[in-house]
């Protein structure tokens, strides 16, 4: 029965073709350092899922942001767990993405024909840091407020256009309700959408070129 169902689906969806094209490719000899990209992807998905669940209770308003997080942490069943995973997962994701980059650099995997994979990867690192920066403000506690005050000022120290950057980041000259709202929007819609798109390109390039040979003594 299952075999029939599978055959019916396979006939219409071409599952095996997808499998062959995406996952069934030759790999260099197993190496744990080569799993960091998959680990980054997993963490991105984990952050996405826990983040979606957090929006069930979180409110991006200066009046309620802090209280809604207190509610998630202290009142909702397993709220501490969902937020804990999101909180620590974000730190872990930055570390894993960074170590992944270091690995690619050390093994010289960024060289021809994988230059574009590297460039899009740098974009992914910056977007990941952007997720960390925007997400840090959302709890709206003293630490996140002042971290954003400082962070946006650093962006504002750019010569000539600095003040405009600061205003665009804050939605005005002050750190306000507008800042919280646009950081929220950036954190849950704009940056994740960009991340998903760039991940798509990055993965396509990884599949197209395969994984690089791990350098040995002859290299």
């Amino acid at each position: 029965m299952w075999r029939k169902l599978y055959a019916w689906l396979e006939d219409r969806l071409g599952l095996e073709e997808i499998y062959k094209a995406t996952l069934d490719r030759p790999e260099p000899k197993g190496n744990w350092w080569n799993t960091l990209g998959s680990a980054s992807l997993f963490l991105f998905l984990l952050q996405g899922v826990t983040g979606i669940f957090l929006t069930v209770y979180y409110t991006p308003s200066p009046d309620h942001a802090y209280d809604s997080i207190q509610y998630i942490m202290n009142d909702v069943a397993f709220g501490w767990l969902i937020r804990g995973i999101h909180h620590w997962g974000s730190t872990l994701m930055v570390i894993v993405v960074f170590v992944h980059m270091v690995r690619v650099f050390v093994t010289a995997s960024y060289k021809y024909p994988r230059e574009l994979t590297w460039i899009f990867g740098v974009g992914l690192l910056l977007l990941t840091l952007g997720m960390g920066f925007t997400g840090y403000l959302l709890p709206w506690n003293q630490r996140s407020y002042w971290a954003t005050e400082v962070g946006t000022r650093i962006a504002g120290s750019v010569p000539l256009i600095g003040d405009s950057i600061l205003r665009v980041l804050r939605g005005g000259p002050d750190l306000s309700a507008l800042t919280l709202q646009r950081f929220f929007s950036g954190h849950i819609w704009i940056i994740p959408a960009l991340l998903a798109a760039v991940i798509g390109v990055h993965l396509y390039l990884v599949m197209r070129h395969g994984e690089s040979h791990f350098p040995d003594k002859d290299d």
């Binding site: 069930v56 909702v76 069943a77 397993f78 767990l81 969902i82």
Partner: peptide, 10 residues
């Protein structure tokens, strides 16, 4: 299990 509890408990 935690996710279902998280969504339904309130």
């Amino acid at each position: 299990v935690p996710v279902v509890g998280y969504l339904l408990q309130p």
